[in-house]
Design a protein around this nucleic acid. Structure first.
Lengths: 120, 120, 120, 120
DNA sequence: GTGGTCTAGACCACG
DNA sequence: GTGGTCTAGACCACG
């Protein structure tokens, strides 16, 4: 899986990495138990500090998306807990996005097309 | 309109204010041309510095959501330009939320129920 | 001559009025010795404070564009002094605009077309 | 690159800084990817507050002229988007300057000499 | 009375 | 070490 950093984004690098790995898991590109690159390898690959990658992995671990152990490095957690609902933060973000969409003149049907497009 | 700040949030205060005013405009709670509280009044009300509120207003102004003049204070811009599509940032955020929703075990139908709920 | 205020502009109202009268003189729409509306009439017409119009007239007078007397109100000065060169402020503004034009990918020929268009 | 502030100017300090950096980029004095001084260094150098410099950088960033990150500081954006035309504000300013030039007795040929002088 | 600018100083997130 | 956020307080321009 290729991680791409957008240097123009205000999203911190560690969060961009975290987000892309989550999206990789979600899309199935990253399979359960699949090995992630080592902190060192990924940092070298992207050209950033190992501390930054380490932070991404720590967050992913604390969120329950990956498992880490000293021996084998990091891998995708085979059975990620499914809460069955959006986090409070994601609810708020979704509300904000919908508000901005409405002001932008997007109707509900058009908005749901974005969902269909991004879901697949 | 009541603005509530979550002091534990990672979202900066000026952005929380900005977001809530945008949501107020979107929901219709804030009408076109409606006066917003003065920078001083809102700062006093929330218990923060005037500079912070001022920053929120300047962002809202630069985004085309409000007008400010020194005589009348700030008010909702009557004709907000409609781009007709999501910003790139909102697209990315929406993709991220959808990814997390899928991992959380939410199916597309359930996800769209959130849209229906928040849209009204 | 019709004065139009742009409420979305950051240019102060008194300066918008001043600028439009200067442009009216420059274009010939306002003739030498032509009477300007009274402060009161113009303020009423635009729907602003008389103090604001008064400030515009004072600036125009101090710049040598108009004459005022208590009896006849304000009129276009018949012989405006011609320095034959740009003011320092206008030089700086022109430099800034040219700089931004160049970065925007406008070449000198295209830029001069703006001059031709606005000069006539 | 040397930034010089005119403390008597009506142009706010943060805007003077912004303008001079834009002019530096336009003239080539500031190269693509060239590091700008840190907020602290520039503030100390000019003798103003860091917040003021920070505001300049944020404007430059929002306008797409520079990049900032907390690791490397600010630098000139390598590929600045080219709109190919003047902004509405610059159009209006140019009209105003031309009007004043005409009243000052400058003819079109002389005015274009300013363009030639400032363009190079 | 309003928003806009600026200061001196502090603390924080990021890397 | 860097930029980002926030405060308390001051003064100014505009209307």
């Amino acid at each position: 899986m290729v991680i791409k950093i957008n240097e123009y984004s205000d999203v911190p690098i560690y969060m961009q990495i975290r987000n892309q790995i989550v999206m990789g898991i979600s899309s199935g590109e990253l399979k359960p138990n699949e090995q992630l690159p080592t902190v060192r390898a990924l940092a070298l690959d992207i050209g950033i500090n190992t501390m930054t990658v380490s932070k991404s992995y720590q967050i992913l671990k604390s969120e329950g998306y990956i498992l880490t152990d000293r021996k084998n490095g990091a891998r995708v957690r085979p059975e990620i807990k499914q809460s069955g609902e959006l986090s409070e933060e994601n609810k708020n973000e979704l509300k904000r996005i919908i508000s901005e969409a409405k002001i932008s003149g997007i109707d509900k049907t058009s908005f749901k097309k974005y969902i269909d497009e991004y879901w697949s």
